[in-house]
């Protein structure tokens, strides 16, 4: 395959940045999108141009590091995948592909396609945990049975990889899917319910402080989420927050 790439280049957070156009050839349909970017980078280095900087690590769709907005969609046109699992067979020979970083006030560009998602860490710091210290004599893990449906739903919410595709894809750059997934995971488990009120209030407050937008319930996030996390979690967080606001 031969492709034309329009890639966002930005030297630093302060730099304005612009699109550059590159050609790549002999791309195999079995390559992942990031392997195609590797080919581009090797080509750029040989020509004496600095390589395109992008976040990536595990390359098996679980670390949540890769973050490219490809042809107008987070992680590109395929569903249920991160950019590292997007394969070139989803494109056609001769295609022009636009590659951009996630764009949100809360996710400033670090360089080229790499953004700073530490806002997510700060939202977790605000309450995305259960306050239990390391202890050698906790109750036995089987002391509290948990209904399988709840355990499964908590797991489904917990599979969030924190990649930020929900924010990137949302027309409002809202982080509701990310925050609600964590709130839901704990709200569904008895261990998590102890701190439920403070958790949802503090996490929502931090989410707002970070400058994410509001939720219009377009549902775009759940479509683009590589882990298929449902907006049912957003509804659950809405309930949790309402309950917390009325009772606290």
């Amino acid at each position: 395959m031969n492709l034309t790439l329009k890639v966002w280049r930005q030297k630093s957070a302060q730099d304005a940045g612009k699109f550059e156009t590159y050609q790549v050839s002999d791309i195999s349909p079995d390559m992942s999108f990031l392997e195609m970017m590797d080919v581009l980078n090797e080509q750029l280095i040989s020509k004496g141009t600095e390589s395109v900087v992008f976040d990536h690590d595990c390359r098996e769709g679980i670390c949540g590091m890769c973050s490219m907005f490809i042809n107008g969609e987070a992680h590109g046109p395929d569903r249920g995948v991160t950019t590292c699992q997007l394969h070139m067979r989803k494109f056609k020979d001769g295609d022009t592909i636009t590659v951009e970083p996630w764009r949100a006030k809360a996710f400033p560009v670090v360089r080229d396609l790499m953004v700073d998602r530490s806002a997510f860490d700060r939202v977790i710091q605000a309450g995305g945990y259960i306050s239990v210290n390391t202890m050698g004599n906790l109750p036995d893990a089987n002391a509290t049975p948990i209904e399988k449906h709840d355990a499964d739903a908590a797991f489904d919410a917990a599979t969030c990889i924190g990649c930020g595709a929900c924010v990137a894809t949302c027309k409002n750059a809202s982080a509701m899917l990310f925050v609600s997934a964590k709130v839901s995971q704990f709200a569904l488990l008895p261990q998590g319910q102890v701190e439920a009120t403070d958790r949802v209030r503090n996490m929502v407050q931090q989410m707002d402080l970070e400058g994410f937008g509001n939720c219009t319930n377009t549902g775009a996030c759940e479509v683009e989420c590589p882990k298929g996390i449902s907006i049912e979690n957003i509804a659950r967080m809405n309930r949790e927050y309402l309950k917390a606001s009325i009772t606290a």
Partner: peptide, 22 residues
Amino acid sequence: ASIIDQCVAQGVPFARDYGGLL
């Protein structure tokens, strides 16, 4: 064994059977 207790207390959603046990 303590690791499993610790993780469950932290809210790690391990797989469970229909009886609600791990």
